[in-house]
Design a protein around this nucleic acid. Structure first.
Length: 281
DNA sequence: ACTATTTCCTGGATGC
DNA sequence: TGCATCCAGGAAATAG
């Protein structure tokens, strides 16, 4: 389940592999769910474009596209999409694969971009929670702040007056973007705060610990290539290793690594939430 | 303006 | 073995 560290890892891998390549043609599957923009818009934005950059925004992978008219026959219609972005959200099970064209096309492949280098960029997503869309550069929704860039005063301001459990607030992408279920639980554990604590009751000192914990957890996870839960692998097909550092996520009933109290699992807003009843208040 | 709940999806695990 | 049921969860939609 790709959250910020996994998406960052994937985006870096893709950037290394496809930056500068040109999309020569596009195939889109029949299942409409993964397409947030219309198939026509996506195909016309991608077709003939050069991939100028690949980066992460929240949990999204953003491809900055440039029209590549120089290398093609005159195509005045391209002027309507001079600077587009191709935006991919991997949902829970989505992946982007760069392969040779002879590699067997896996089940649940929903989009294929054929590249001038002879390779293909494929979007595969069994559960179809992922989304593909295009936007004009600058139009992509920028609500929500990057957790690795925010300072303490802005962080505290996000939660002012909110009665919702802090766990729910951390998952709200309109506030912070990129934190998902795993990293919310791990950050709250490191900060000693229970997931059901109402956001508005948390003190400034505790917010300071929480923000430090979030940054620490995300940075450690990025350094280890993310967490490989179920079948997550990065753009090179490599697994991440941060799952070995999980202190509460997925450890229901196992002893807390600090105090040996069994880790509890509760459900908040439909999400399983793991915490130590002794270490977290 | 907020908050809580429901819905979308499939594959793997579990139960009888 | 086979078949039904449950569960994972991000984000949009819906209801309050």
């Amino acid at each position: 389940m790709p959250e910020l560290p996994e998406v960052e890892t994937i985006a870096r891998g893709l950037a290394r592999r496809v930056t500068g390549d040109v999309i020569e043609s596009v195939w889109l599957g029949k299942k409409p769910e993964p397409l947030k923009s219309s198939a026509r818009e996506i195909a016309s934005a991608l077709d003939g474009s050069r991939i100028a950059a690949v980066r992460r925004m929240g949990k999204h992978i953003v491809f900055d596209l440039e029209s590549n008219n120089v290398a093609r026959a005159p195509a005045p219609a391209k002027a309507s999409h001079p600077k587009a972005q191709f935006i991919v959200h991997l949902g829970m099970t989505g992946s982007l694969q760069v392969t040779g064209p002879q590699t067997e096309i896996p089940k649940h492949t929903h989009a294929i971009a054929r590249l001038a280098s002879g390779r293909e960029l494929r979007f595969v997503d069994p559960r179809r929670f992922g989304r593909l869309s295009v936007a004009r550069r600058g139009d992509f929704d920028t609500t929500g702040i990057e957790p690795l860039e925010i300072d303490l005063d802005h962080f505290i301001a996000l939660f002012r007056g909110r009665k919702t459990p802090i766990k729910s607030a951390l998952l709200n992408q309109k506030l912070l973007r990129g934190v998902g279920n795993i990293y919310a639980d791990e950050s709250l554990f490191r900060a000693g705060i229970r997931p059901r604590r109402r956001a508005s009751t948390i003190t400034r000192d505790q917010f300071a610990k929480l923000l430090a914990a979030i940054k620490e957890v995300l940075q450690e996870a990025i350094a280890l290539g993310g967490s490989s839960i179920s079948d997550y692998v990065d753009a090179n097909g490599d697994e991440g290793f941060f799952q070995l550092q999980h202190r509460v996520y997925g450890r229901e009933g196992e002893p807390c690594l600090v105090c040996k109290t069994p880790v509890k699992r509760i459900v908040i807003a439909g999400r399983s939430s793991h915490y130590c009843p002794h270490c977290q208040k």
